[in-house]
Design a protein around this nucleic acid. Structure first.
Lengths: 203, 203
DNA sequence: TTTTTATTTATGAACGACCATTCATTAAAA
DNA sequence: TTTTAATGAATGGTCGTTCATAAATAAAAA
């Protein structure tokens, strides 16, 4: 029975509670007391599992970015995948990660970068660069194949990623649009925006 | 000679310096001492011109939103304007406001809402609703005229607005793309995304 | 114009609150 | 017995804000 070590359990508890608090109230507005309260112990105990407040933030940002990256890492080099499907996978995966669990989500990712030490900030930015690279490679292949007719691939990536990332702001789980609706809409919108006239597979 | 009153001058100075600091460092991370330092006097003096820190934030957010709204208020009802031109005006105006002066811009607008009192927050949200209404009315007219072929107008508005608002994150004034480049790209991208096949006027 | 009065602008010092973090110590688990 | 988990108390710091007061400016009266 590979029972998880106690220390790992508490670490995960702290990360989980902190994540909710950071997203809801913001990093600066969340105190170590808030986190400890939510976990059911005193603030001092947090320091048995984390070096300081910043390391908690970093762990959260890094893991979340990793969750976004992992399912699409293969898309960058795999030449056998239709760029349209690649685009759809990126959009669907990112949107599901973004809108899936969290509620009342604010923009921890963007504002939180400022609260990181230069060393940790660099690590997150490296993840972002990888995300950009994956998307760009899909764009390039789509363009080379004559499917995408976009002039500025980088701007296209930024625009599409912006639509996705910002959905955190306006999306409400009980609204008129499901996550799947949004995925479908953004995919079609992006495809047309990229100059793809006829939808490939009518699925 | 309509010389400005001293009190108004200091108020504007405080607002200007605070705006820069809030955008660069974030609201919570900016102290009244920071603001006073930037203005060249002591913190206590700020309270001769503003009730408290929150009222400064509110004034900034409200004014900025007003700057975005004012130039496009006429677009909501004016039936004589081509929806394509309406769309372009919204994009161009908003982007110019967003990317124009500020640098190192973070997402004050989104995270800052949490720091407002319920009463003030309601006022800003009212402005946002007006923005949405203007965009939606342009969409509807474009759709009714058979120009836009979008199915979900609300999602379309959110997507386009997201591209614009988030450009604050990735835009750099010294980068490869000028503001005008971005305007042109987003306009074309949105137009195609909305199903407009042939560009109306080729400039 | 000068002098007096009122008003505005600016200050230093202090307040209470909360902050992240440290540390010696105890309780629990291995 | 050794390691891990949890605690209470305390530290030094920063925060927004208040307040009595001083300096500067404007208005009114002489």
């Amino acid at each position: 029975m590979p029972q998880e070590k106690e220390s790992k359990i508490q670490q995960k508890l702290i990360l989980s509670k902190s994540s909710t608090l950071f997203w809801e109230k913001g990093y600066a507005e969340t105190s170590m007391r808030d986190i400890a309260n939510e976990c059911g112990f005193r603030p001092a105990n947090i320091y048995n599992f984390f070096e300081n407040k910043e390391s908690i933030l970093f762990e959260i940002l890094f893991q979340e970015m990793e969750d976004i990256l992992t399912p699409i890492r293969n898309l960058a080099e795999d030449e056998s995948i239709d760029p349209r499907d690649g685009l759809k996978q990126v959009i669907a995966n990112h949107l599901r990660m973004t809108l899936g669990e969290k509620r009342n989500a604010k923009l921890l990712f963007d504002s939180g970068l400022n609260n990181l030490s230069p060393k940790n900030r660099k690590k997150i930015i490296k993840q972002r660069d990888e995300y950009d690279r994956i998307c760009l490679s899909i764009m390039s292949r789509g363009k080379k194949a004559g499917i995408f007719k976009c002039e500025n691939e980088r701007l296209a990536v930024y625009c599409i990623a912006s639509m996705i990332a910002r959905s955190r702001i306006w999306y409400t789980p009980d609204g008129r649009n499901s996550v799947d609706d949004i995925i479908e809409f953004m995919y079609e919108f992006s495809l047309k925006g990229l100059g793809v006239v006829k939808t490939g597979a009518k699925k």
